[in-house]
């Protein structure tokens, strides 16, 4: 059954967590009776390393505190006769501290410590403790940022976007640069032909070979045509500017703009009979459909075709 579960990622995760928890529990068990009072406080779900970190910190802090108390005690020794009994709990605390080094929960110990403080010597003023605690909290915050504390997804997302905005503001602020193109000039020649006057100009603005665009236009429109001497395209059939615009729009969507980031800054390459669209902005590379005119029905005079083939 375990083997089955290993394949599932989510389950595995859960399992991992669980095992971690178990380990902790086991550790706690190993530590013996002295830690038994901490185990109930161990809610388990929180990350172990983070807690460890905190504990270590606290440990240091506490040590300092302890030193201070010692100092106080030293002072007090002169003043009060109660000192010997206070020494004993102190030693006990030491033991507890050592346990804490390995321990998981923090809040409980802190509480306990405070309690102990009060127990140990009420002569240490409340204010002193509080001030120290506040210090503790502040330090925690600093450590919290530095440590591998489990950030939520939203927090991290916000952070990464903040960094992005900071590092390159041009990327986020109004990158929607419109792709401006001059409209195609379409003029009717006679009754049966249409001229696309600025065809080569549009090819240049799109950075595409005239032949490629020509192939596409003729295949889409299902006609024939050619570029004449004045670098204008003559298409057989009647077409309006709007219709040509539509076809051009489709061409740009398929063969000019990057399919990933929609940037028009792309290069069309031919690799082993396939066309690839390489984006200069995002670096993506994807294949694009080859131009096929597909089935063409017979529209002219059949007699003429027969005469041609025969």
């Amino acid at each position: 059954m375990d083997d089955d579960m290993i394949f599932d990622p989510s389950l595995k995760k859960k399992k991992k967590k669980k095992t971690g928890f178990d380990l902790e529990a086991a550790l706690a068990g190993e530590q013996g009776e002295s830690t038994s009072m901490e185990t109930p406080a161990d809610t388990g779900d929180v990350d172990a390393p983070e807690d460890d970190n905190l504990d270590l910190d606290n440990f240091g802090k506490k040590k300092k505190k302890k030193k201070k108390t010692f100092f106080n005690l030293g002072e007090l020794e002169n003043a009060l006769p109660e000192t010997p009994p206070t020494e004993e709990p102190e030693a006990q605390e030491d033991e507890v501290m050592d346990d804490l080094d390995l321990d998981i929960d923090f809040t409980k110990t802190k509480k306990k410590k405070r309690k102990k403080d009060k127990n140990v010597d009420e002569l240490v003023t409340e204010e002193d403790v509080r001030g120290e605690d506040q210090e503790n909290v502040e330090d925690e915050h600093g450590e919290w940022v530095g440590s591998d504390h489990d950030y939520s997804y939203d927090e991290l997302l916000e952070r990464v976007f903040d960094i992005m905005r900071e590092k390159n503001p041009s990327m986020v602020s109004g990158k929607k640069q419109k792709f401006i193109m001059r409209p195609p000039q379409v003029v009717r020649i006679g009754t049966k032909k249409t001229s696309f006057a600025n065809f080569t100009e549009i090819c240049k603005t799109l950075h595409r070979q005239a032949k490629h665009l020509l192939d596409f236009l003729l295949a889409e429109l299902g006609t024939s045509g050619s570029v004449d001497g004045n670098s204008q395209l003559i298409i057989k059939g009647r077409f309006q500017q709007k219709q040509i615009e539509n076809v051009l729009r489709r061409y740009i969507k398929e063969y000019v703009t990057c399919h990933t980031c929609r940037s028009p800054d792309t290069i069309l390459q031919k690799d082993t009979r396939l066309f690839f669209l390489q984006c200069e902005t995002c670096g993506s590379r994807c294949s694009v459909a080859s131009i096929k005119s597909g089935f063409q029905a017979v529209t002219g005079k059949r007699a003429a075709i027969r005469a041609k083939t025969a």
């Binding site: 429109l221 299902g222 006609t223 059939g237 009647r238 597909g294 089935f295 063409q296 029905a297 529209t299």
Partner: peptide, 18 residues
């Protein structure tokens, strides 16, 4: 399924479904 249009003489057209 490709749906195409072809122009014939005048304003007549032809639709092909391939």
């Amino acid at each position: 399924v490709h749906v195409r249009i072809q122009q014939r003489n005048g304003r007549k057209t032809l639709t092909t479904v391939q």
